[in-house]
Each structure stands twice: as structure tokens, then as C-alpha cells.
């Protein structure tokens, strides 16, 4: 069954002939599996899928996204999540079950222009996605620098088990919040670090398809293996830094793992039936 391993395809390409299950970005026509996106075709024991290399963000259930509050009605906020549908954050999610539009001032909690990290709880294309912020690490983002990248580059930016994003965070002394919708918020101690992190992220976005990208990023950030080692050895010297660092890294690990697990677990629900 594992006949296809990472083959480059464009729309219309026949990936394989035979009785395989179409998973993602593929259609079945007669006995052929045909790609519908530019990307990398892969087969697994579940079926055939194409990992896309371009495209706008289409919401999926359980994605963690960063969105901007655009407006509020009396019962919910409207959130721009960089997709073709605007998302809704119900007021009860923030105020609790006893929310009353008369008593509670929604603008005091989240005003138009605020950024939030949220999780998509429901979405089925026939209705706009619904969000929640009632979880650990979700909610309003107080400060940071805003950056938009293509959502197809998000897995690459995170890297395997968060390796890429950790490299960037450590070298630039920043903390990078990543939404699956391609919106990033970078916070850091100094502007130089943030500027450098921006550069690194742009590099990843532009050269996502090239190999040896981690090395390129490391070159850009002037991280060699030795320095990383000495840094960890000297960690006791700049103790304060290190504590902050490790805290941050733990957080980012969680975030990153969340993301990667989201990407890897393509549940059957998300399969597009054709």
C-alpha cells in the first residue's frame, strides 16, 4: 500500500490507480486518485492525501487560531480569523451562563481591534465557525507584534515537534504565538530580537519547500551547534534569563505540540467527500 512517498503533484495529476481511499485534496474518478491541489502526495494505510503548498485558510474544528475582534452584536462577538468566513465568539463563552446583554458590557471585555487566541468548536461550511476562549492558553492577547503568513506554511514554521519555532524563539529571545490560520504574534524583550524573528519567519515562509531549511534559519540567526551548547552550559550564569527561557519554552512546547497534533490527526470528519 505504501507505494507513494512524497510525490510532487499539481491539480489533475493522477496519483495512483486502484481502490484507495481519498483522504484530503484528492478526488476519486473511475479507478484513479486525482490530486486537486499543488502539493505533496502521500499514501498511508488510511488512504491517499495531498499536503497542499498554497491556499487560503479554511477553518477546521479544533484549530487554534488568532483572530481580531471586528464587531459585537448583543449576544456574540464577530471575529476576523483570516478566512472566507468570519467567526463568532458567543458572549456566554466569556461571561458564563448567566450572561445578560443588559447588565454586562461586552466592549469592556473585548473591544473591536483586540486580538484573541481561540479554538474553533464548530464548523461545517454551512454556517460560520464558532469559537471558544475558555481554555488554557486561550484568550485576549495583551501585547506583541502582529504578522501574517500563509496558513500552509504553519506546519513548516513549527517544524518537527516544534523544532523550528523553538530554534527561532531561543535565538531571538522571543515568544511566538502561532494560529493555524497563519496569524502570528511575536513578543520579546527587545526590538532587535523581534525584528530578527520576523526575518527568520519570512525566510521560512518564502523557502518552505526547500530542504535544509533549519540550517538556513540557524545561519540567519547566527546559531551554531556549539553556541547553543555553551549557552545551555552557561545557563547558571544568566540565571534569570534561563528561568524565563525555560518557562517560555515549556509553553511554546505545549502550543507547538497542540498544533502539530492538529495537523497530523486528520480525523475522518475532515475528509472531503467527493
Amino acid at each position: 500500500m505504501l507505494e507513494i512517498k512524497k510525490r510532487y503533484v499539481i491539480p489533475g495529476d493522477v496519483i495512483i490507480e486502484g481502490n484507495y481511499r481519498p483522504l484530503m485534496n484528492v478526488i476519486k474518478k473511475d479507478n484513479f486518485i486525482i490530486a486537486t491541489r499543488i502539493g505533496i502526495a502521500e499514501s498511508s494505510k488510511d488512504g491517499i492525501k495531498v499536503i497542499p503548498l498554497s491556499g487560503v485558510y479554511i477553518p477546521r474544528i479544533n484549530d487554534i487560531v488568532i483572530g481580531k475582534i471586528v464587531d459585537n452584536s448583543s449576544l456574540s462577538w464577530e471575529v476576523d480569523i483570516n478566512a472566507c468566513f468570519s467567526a463568532h465568539l458567543p458572549a456566554q463563552d466569556v461571561f458564563g451562563r448567566d450572561f445578560s446583554p443588559a447588565k454586562d458590557d461586552m466592549k469592556k471585555r473585548l473591544a473591536p481591534g483586540d486580538l484573541v487566541t481561540a479554538r474553533i468548536i464548530t464548523f461545517d461550511r454551512t454556517r460560520d465557525p464558532m469559537l471558544t476562549i475558555q481554555e488554557k492558553d486561550l484568550g485576549k492577547i495583551s501585547n506583541g507584534e502582529f504578522l501574517k503568513i500563509s496558513s500552509t506554511r504553519v506546519p513548516r514554521l513549527i517544524g518537527k515537534r516544534g523544532s523550528m519555532i523553538q530554534t527561532i524563539e531561543q535565538a531571538t529571545q522571543t515568544r511566538i504565538l502561532i494560529g493555524q490560520n497563519g496569524i502570528l504574534v511575536v513578543t520579546g524583550k527587545n526590538d532587535e530580537g523581534i525584528a530578527l524573528a520576523f526575518k527568520a519567519i519570512k525566510l521560512v515562509e518564502e523557502e518552505a519547500h526547500t530542504s535544509n531549511l533549519t540550517q538556513k534559519v540557524k545561519d540567519l540567526l547566527n546559531v551554531s551547534e556549539e553556541i547553543t551548547q555553551t549557552e545551555t552550559n552557561n545557563s547558571s550564569v544568566n540565571n534569570e534569563h534561563y528561568v524565563n527561557n525555560s518557562n517560555r519554552d515549556n509553553n511554546s512546547n505545549n502550543m507547538a505540540n497542540d498544533h502539530s497534533s492538529n495537523i497530523n490527526t486528520e480525523s475522518p470528519k475532515e475528509v472531503q467527500p467527493h
Partner: peptide
């Protein structure tokens, strides 16, 4: 998308695996 040095259909390891 894939660079001109890579002929189409060539089975290639994704960069993640190399690193």
C-alpha cells in the same frame, strides 16, 4: 513550487525527514 532541478514524479524525501 518544487524548483526546476527536481523532475516531476521523482520520489523525494521531504525535507523534514532529512533534518
Amino acid at each position: 513550487y518544487f524548483g526546476n532541478d527536481l523532475p516531476e514524479g521523482e520520489e523525494k524525501e521531504l525535507e523534514e525527514n532529512k533534518e
